[in-house]
């Protein structure tokens, strides 16, 4: 194999890995939000949360489907979702945290939705046309998600004493998981250099400006004492992910080779 063929193979594998980890982010969060069905504070919210979950599951299908096409070895979107173990999942940790109460879910959504607003915009400028197409579709959904999580944050932050307390508690508990969203590893750096991947470090400032403005209007605070947990992109997860995958993968794995 010549050096240039070897490079092509490596960059294709890099692309597959990148697409799969974006798929991991989407399926893990989609799964978490889907846990709200029949648990919402009122019926309209059951429907709205279902919509958001569906958007993320749809996103995961597009990304895993693209990874399957790139792999060209008979794998399907489902193989990526159902046949990999915890250590192989490379989603950011924030996505796997339990659904928590409604304030916790809204806080996580606000941070992730605003992140996606900038991330997907940047991804529409990727050198990879399929990623551009996926980002363009997903951006429309994220616009709605941002509107929703912003208005809920304002409502709960400026609602009752209890709702404010719950929101602040959620922010304090989740904030430390936001830092790794803006850090790239070697794989992403190689793809940033070829114009394929998003340079997420550049998104931090606009994201933080948005978050601060919304928190200020809602009367909420960014935690003073900063902390950070990292590891999602290395497959170094919280204990929550294993249980999520156990539940998600159990039927698929119990019937190897079956169609559904």
């Amino acid at each position: 194999m010549t050096q240039s063929t070897q490079n092509k193979v490596d960059s294709k594998q890099d692309l597959i890995n990148y697409v799969v980890r974006l798929g991991d982010d989407a399926i893990v969060l989609g799964h978490r939000i889907s846990e709200w069905v029949s648990e919402g504070p009122f019926l309209e919210e059951d429907i709205a949360l279902g919509n958001v979950a569906l958007d993320y599951i749809g996103r995961a299908r597009m990304l895993y489907g693209y990874a399957a096409t790139l792999s060209d070895d008979g794998k399907t979107e489902d193989d990526f979702a159902f046949l990999r173990d915890e250590r192989q999942f490379e989603n950011y940790l924030i996505n796997e945290l339990p659904r928590g109460d409604f304030a916790y879910t809204i806080t996580r959504q606000l941070l992730v939705d605003l992140y996606n607003k900038y991330y997907l915009l940047a991804l529409t400028k990727s050198a990879d046309p399929t990623l551009v197409a996926i980002a363009q579709k997903a951006r429309k959904e994220t616009t709605y998600h941002c509107r929703r999580s912003t208005s809920w944050t304002l409502r709960l932050g400026d609602g009752t004493t209890e709702s404010k307390q719950r929101m602040q508690l959620a922010i304090d508990d989740i904030w430390g998981y936001s830092h790794e969203l803006f850090e790239s590893d070697a794989l992403e750096q190689r793809l940033i250099d070829t114009g394929v991947a998003v340079d997420c470090a550049a998104l931090k400032q606009p994201w933080l400006t948005d978050v601060k403005a919304i928190f200020e209007e809602a009367g909420l605070n960014i935690p003073q004492q900063d902390w950070a947990v990292r590891g999602g992109r290395k497959g170094y997860h919280s204990e929550h992910l294993g249980h999520l995958l156990t539940q998600m993968q159990f039927v698929y794995r119990s019937f190897p080779g079956a169609n559904w």
């Binding site: 029949s38 019926l43 159902f82 998600m248 039927v251």
Partner: peptide
């Protein structure tokens, strides 16, 4: 069964179905 659906497609279809039921309730 949403969290245990055996394929991504089935998960999405079941979720939208259950969501429709909420809509019917409304």
């Amino acid at each position: 069964w949403i969290t245990r659906a055996p394929s991504l497609r089935r998960k999405a279809v079941l979720l939208s179905k259950v969501q429709d039921e909420a809509g019917h309730g409304l």
